[in-house]
Simulated assay, not measured.
Amino acid sequence: MNSDGVYDFYLHEKDCDIGEIKRKILDAVSDDHKDDFERFYPSPADLNYLPRNSVLIRLQFTLKKPYTSRGEDAFSTNPIVRDKFTCLPIVRPSTWKGNLRFAATKLKGPKNPIIIRLFGSNPDSEDTVKGRLYFFPTFFKDRAGNDVITPLKRETRTPARGPIPLEVMKPGTKGDFYLLYVPYPGKENFRDEIKEDLKLIAEALKLMFYTYGFSAKRTSGFGVVEKQLKGNLWMRGGVSKNFSDLHKLSEILDGYRYEQH
Rank of each mutant, 00 (worst) to 15 (best):
F136Q: 00
P79K: 03
E72T: 15
L50M: 15
T68N: 12
S54P: 07
C87N: 14
L118F: 02
N48S: 13
P51R: 06
V55K: 09
F139N: 03
T128W: 07
I114T: 14
P79N: 03
N53R: 07
F136W: 01
L56K: 06
L133A: 05
K106L: 14
T68E: 09
S30I: 09
P44N: 08
R92Y: 10
K141Q: 14
K130D: 12
S125M: 06
D35K: 10
V29Q: 11
D83T: 05
Y49W: 09
V129S: 02
V91W: 04
R143K: 15
A144G: 10
D124G: 14
N53L: 09
D83C: 04
N122F: 13
F85Q: 12
P93T: 03
R58G: 10
A104P: 02
G145T: 13
P42H: 01
F85V: 15
T138P: 04
P66Y: 04
L56R: 08
L107F: 00
P51G: 05
A74I: 07
C87P: 02
V129G: 02
F135N: 00
C87I: 01
L50E: 10
R143P: 07
F75N: 09
G71K: 09
N122E: 14
D142Y: 05
T138Y: 03
R52K: 15
N48C: 08
D35V: 08
S43T: 14
E126R: 15
L133Q: 05
A45G: 13
T86F: 02
I116D: 11
T77H: 12
K106T: 06
D124E: 14
D127S: 14
S43G: 09
V129Y: 12
L59D: 05
F37C: 06
E38K: 15
A103G: 00
G131A: 03
P44Q: 08
D36A: 13
P44S: 08
